[in-house]
Amino acid sequence: MIKRLLSFLFPIKIHEKKSDFSKNLEVTWNNGYLVLDSKNTNYSFGSLQRVLKKGLKYIGYERIRNFKSILILGVAGGSVIDTLKNEVKFEGTITGVEIDSTVIELAKKYFGLDNYNKVSIINEDAFEFVLKTKEKYDLIIIDIFQDTTMPNFLFEDFFINRINYLLNIKGFILFNTMVLDYQDRRRNAIYKSKFESNYSVRLYPKIEVHNELFTIKKLA
């Protein structure tokens, strides 16, 4: 409790651990909340949670409550699951895919990741999971970073087409991207152009300074 109170004055790191994928992970009290950070960016329960919460609001909480299944690629500490369960009041099934076993370990220990009902966490590469899963989803959330870097496969045609195949009609993709320079902006513009007329694509720039969000609805 003392550390939590002091965190309103300055961040207090309570755990640090090396990771094969994220190099260095830190659990910190910050403004009264536990957050999970990598070296250069927030992974969960800080600015990232605010970013994805805005995206969910753009889609609409009431609409999401009527969904039956959600896929999350890139779970980190599980802040978007916390939002879906405790704020949106989503009661369907959630499948979370996270490549970093160290992240999953910290998320369970400090953020209660294993305390949710109807939530399955799979320790696997998102590309491999998407390639072989036979399930389809009403909402697919893509939030994959290694510190401030986004893997190239997220923007490649094969992955995009596979995600689109896994999405139910009238379903949504919520894609969180990081834009640091001109090349990133160009990458996002090219990504947006890859969707045909049977998709409704919206781009929301300048979310928490460096984040751009896509919401993509499958119309038919």
Rank of each mutant, 00 (worst) to 15 (best):
143 D>G: 03
187 R>V: 06
74 G>T: 08
17 K>D: 03
159 F>N: 03
66 N>K: 15
204 Y>A: 00
15 H>R: 11
148 T>C: 00
210 H>L: 14
84 L>Y: 09
36 L>I: 05
55 G>S: 00
82 D>W: 14
31 N>F: 12
60 G>M: 11
99 I>D: 09
15 H>W: 12
159 F>Q: 08
59 I>T: 05
84 L>M: 13
110 Y>M: 06
96 G>F: 10
78 G>H: 02
193 S>F: 06
196 E>P: 00
49 Q>F: 01
161 N>K: 13
143 D>L: 12
192 K>G: 06
5 L>E: 08
78 G>P: 09
55 G>L: 05
64 I>F: 01
87 E>W: 07
191 Y>W: 14
4 R>Y: 00
105 E>R: 02
87 E>D: 14
121 I>A: 05
73 L>I: 00
158 F>V: 14
189 A>Y: 14
70 I>A: 02
135 E>W: 02
130 V>D: 06
190 I>W: 05
168 N>M: 06
39 K>N: 12
31 N>S: 13
59 I>D: 02
103 V>T: 15
129 F>P: 11
116 Y>P: 06
54 K>Q: 15
120 S>P: 00
9 L>Y: 11
130 V>H: 01
71 L>C: 11
154 L>T: 04
59 I>S: 04
20 D>A: 09
169 I>N: 13
133 T>G: 03
118 K>Y: 09
175 F>T: 00
119 V>S: 05
21 F>V: 11
139 L>S: 04
59 I>N: 08
188 N>P: 02
151 P>A: 06
65 R>P: 01
134 K>N: 15
8 F>I: 02
103 V>S: 14
214 F>L: 09
199 Y>V: 05
165 Y>T: 12
210 H>R: 13
113 L>H: 07
177 T>A: 01
127 F>P: 01
164 N>P: 03
56 L>K: 01
9 L>M: 11
77 G>L: 12
34 L>S: 07
127 F>L: 15
49 Q>M: 15
32 G>E: 07
116 Y>D: 10
32 G>Q: 12
209 V>N: 15
54 K>M: 15
118 K>C: 05
72 I>D: 08
97 V>R: 10
189 A>P: 00
24 N>C: 11
186 R>Q: 14
207 I>K: 07
68 K>V: 04
20 D>V: 11
147 D>W: 09
161 N>F: 05
100 D>Y: 00
199 Y>N: 03
218 K>T: 05
197 S>E: 14
109 K>N: 05
81 I>A: 04
7 S>I: 05
114 D>H: 04
5 L>H: 00
40 N>T: 11
185 R>E: 15
189 A>E: 14
129 F>M: 03
17 K>S: 13
60 G>F: 01
187 R>K: 15
188 N>M: 11
74 G>A: 10
16 E>Y: 08
144 I>E: 08
53 K>I: 02
34 L>R: 10
9 L>V: 07
84 L>G: 05
72 I>Y: 02
187 R>Y: 09
71 L>Y: 07
85 K>T: 10
192 K>V: 03
149 T>L: 12
32 G>D: 08
58 Y>K: 13
49 Q>R: 13
53 K>C: 08
127 F>Q: 14
116 Y>G: 05
219 L>K: 11
192 K>L: 06
159 F>V: 10
93 T>M: 09
81 I>Q: 07
157 D>V: 12
134 K>I: 08
127 F>S: 10
23 K>P: 02
219 L>D: 03
161 N>I: 04
15 H>Q: 11
126 A>T: 04
139 L>P: 02
86 N>H: 10
210 H>I: 09
145 F>V: 06
155 F>M: 02
